[in-house]
Design a protein around this nucleic acid. Structure first.
Lengths: 161, 161
DNA sequence: GCGATACATGACATAATAGTCTAGATTGCG
DNA sequence: CGCAATCTAGACTATTATGTCATGTATCGC
């Protein structure tokens, strides 16, 4: 069970846009250390899903389509990485058979569902606004705690991530 | 965020062994609808991780290395599919940079951790014994509820999976 | 209008995952 | 012993996820 790269990077891009109100691909790309093409691809997914709006042209860029409070992280992750346990799951895992052998007696399915529920419970409580608030606090805290530290020193303090 | 095929199939194989006390590759392969080679690969992972023991030769096969009560599903899934959020995660997702831009201010990391905790809480409560009990009950229930139904009828009742 | 700055899109290349196949080693039985 | 049933290991292939690239479209300011 893993988070996909698309979930990680896509969510980061969304946070960047939220923090800056408005941002262009080159800006986001620079901030997150992604190529512009890669960034464009991720933003395209977020835009098609209705989380952000785009404006073309000289002073164009992206901004949130709705207030951050109304953007649930669960929805964002679903678009970027799919549902953990979706309806097609069992159909896709019937091995060589056309039908899963466990019809009517699938004890694993219940575990998957429980996990899905637990994850949903966490995610439904978190909106983009929560993440933005957290990011802002962290940035403000930084100079106080770590003023004067070089990058390689910082790495040790924070154990990288 | 997805379950991997290896997690799904590997766990199923373990359940089959638990239910039958002892099972061979051809048996498990038949029950789960997997090729024998595929089954062998999955069992090899489970064996190396110490969940099952193997015996070669004519009357060989696999059996649980410990009582099902002592086999935590969390451990099994970790071996089959890795941790959801492990230490190398952020290092692997720094994009083109050698170091993540969010050192010291990573709001996403906290979401990933919360999800990881929620999943762990669910999984730590479940042992292989719980899954075996559930599987046995389901099998016993079947004839009562669905006696006389053909496969294609069953499919409709149970909505496949 | 035209050039600079942006976004849009789909084909392509690369890497990770999933699953197959070949060859070999071990054990029990007659 | 020699054969059949069983596990073991690792190379190979196919599929999917990731990320790049080339090309095209829209908007603004001059």
């Amino acid at each position: 069970m893993k988070f996909s790269a698309q979930e990680e990077y896509g969510l980061r891009c969304l946070i960047t846009i939220g923090l800056k109100e408005s941002a262009t691909i080159p800006e986001i790309s620079r901030e997150e250390g992604l190529s512009e093409h890669h960034t464009a691809k991720l933003l395209s997914i977020l835009r098609k899903a209705g989380f952000i709006n785009s404006t073309r042209g000289h002073i164009g860029g992206y901004r949130l389509a709705r207030p951050a409070e109304e953007i649930a992280i669960s929805g964002v992750l679903e678009v970027l990485g799919g549902k953990l346990y979706d309806k097609r799951f069992c159909a896709k895992h019937s091995g060589l058979l056309t039908m899963c052998t466990h019809v009517g007696s699938c004890s694993i399915r219940s575990v998957w569902r429980q996990i899905q529920d637990a994850v949903d419970t966490v995610l439904d409580r978190v909106s983009l606004a929560d993440l933005l608030a957290e990011a802002e606090v962290s940035i403000l805290d930084l100079p106080k705690d770590r003023a004067g530290l070089k990058n390689h020193e910082l790495r040790q303090v924070t154990n990288v991530h």
